[in-house]
Nucleic acid binder design. Structure first.
Lengths: 242, 242
DNA sequence: CCCTTTAATAGTCAGCTCGACTATAAAAGG
DNA sequence: CCTTTTATAGTCGAGCTGACTATTAAAGGG
């Protein structure tokens, strides 16, 4: 607290503060991440997480949401789930200068082809796990984000953030399977979801949706519950969970 | 990513980056927090979380551990649990300048009277909840830290970080009760702890500790497990968990 | 020296949840 | 019409949990 009491005493180079975004969505049942391609050194030609500098009048959260709108091309990102992950501040993480980056995870229901509009942001949806090594420490950030999202599916109702306003239980189950990378037993899944008050609520108009062959599925909307008690644990292949 | 590709193009004031620490310990069964008293404006006379600037060659984690050592007066803080909470970056959070603060939570087993050694750091252990309004946004940070620690007790073996190397199950239970603020059923608690492989392991020398009246309790050490599956949920007074 | 108090440890029992299934219903396609 | 496909319904036993009761081993006071 010495330094805190005497601001004029400290002598150090300033920090640049950025936000980095791990934006996830589901496309055809597979988890995808939004990545940009770097045109300049360092890491020219590598992919990277979208992000940018925090402006003087912004909080990191505000900057993250602004970047999210810019990179996805979506006009309204106000309802999207955006969550601070953690801050990466290793001295050598950017070879050019001292950059402290606040990382966020975001979830999108549908996947519009990115790099929308006129700005030069070139972002693409890439299936999770298929992008080569990313620039800077972005592999680590992305892995942390994936782990966080997977964990939050267990004890929150976050999964509906991946779904359109109306969805079937099968689609909701696909969210879990895509993020966790493991199959989920269908009858047990619907029992758990339907037994949790406020997780989903049926669309009353006896609505149903069809796109494939089988029996049409009932439609549901996201409820107002946020947490899951008890949690919906992902299957562990055996032994101690990580 | 525009700005990321052209560092020389950005023009903005630099940010100061600090760490703030919410350091918890148990004293006589009650949860305490380490707080410093501010001598200068703003918030002169208010208490605040210990913290300080991140130096140019440090990561936030390194800075946090350095501050932890300085403020507690402990010579060895390498084994202590230190965990990044989140980053607070609202533009107006410090009236003097633009400060982005990375918050950490730390857990101490015993509670040496702080402000040790010769340095001017004056830190005191204050029972949690009894300190008036804190400086800056530190009330919010402290509340977030408390919530995080309480949540992690549910699904990790973190509670042993509050205990000395050897402890009784009663002491371990006190950790849960102090952090959660609710009583815990003793037989059920020990059944759960003992049934979780790797949570605690008995000290083989039939050791026992006594300080009070009743039957002496067996001593245990922390095991090597880190997570709790299934979790040890804190009692909910009824209804939806927050 | 006994008896009360205090705290640790052991054990019981019903209810709930979960994983692993099997069975039925309702559509599409040939 | 029959097969395939997918949604939905139901069954059964194991395991965990919450709410208890009982026993054991010490300290302290009369």
């Amino acid at each position: 607290m010495l330094a805190m009491d005497g601001y004029d005493k400290y002598a150090h180079e300033p920090f640049a503060v950025t936000v980095d975004l791990a934006v996830f969505t589901l496309r055809e049942g597979a988890l995808h991440v939004l990545l940009v391609e770097r045109g300049q050194e360092p890491y020219a030609g590598h992919r990277a997480l979208p992000g940018g500098f925090v402006q003087p009048d912004e909080s990191a959260e505000t900057a993250a949401r602004r970047e999210l709108a810019e990179e996805t091309g979506l006009s309204d990102v106000s309802g999207l789930h955006l969550e601070q992950l953690r801050t990466y501040s290793e001295p050598g993480r950017d070879p050019r200068m001292r950059v402290v980056s606040v990382a966020f995870a975001a979830l999108l229901p549908d996947a519009p082809e990115a790099h929308g509009g006129s700005d030069a942001a070139r972002a693409d949806w890439v299936p999770y796990g298929t992008a080569g090594p990313l620039a800077f420490d972005h592999d680590r950030i992305l892995a942390d984000a994936h782990e966080r999202v997977g964990a939050k599916l267990e004890y929150t109702c976050l999964a509906t953030a991946f779904c359109p306003p109306e969805f079937t239980l099968g689609e909701l189950q696909q969210v879990y399977e895509a993020v966790w990378g493991t199959p989920v037993d269908r009858p047990n899944f619907r029992r758990k979801v339907l037994a949790t008050p406020g997780f989903v609520e049926p669309v009353p108009g006896a609505a149903r949706l069809t796109g494939g062959r089988g029996k049409p599925a009932a439609l549901y909307r996201a409820g107002n519950a946020t947490t899951l008690h008890p949690p919906l644990l992902r299957p562990t292949p055996e032994g101690r969970p990580a």
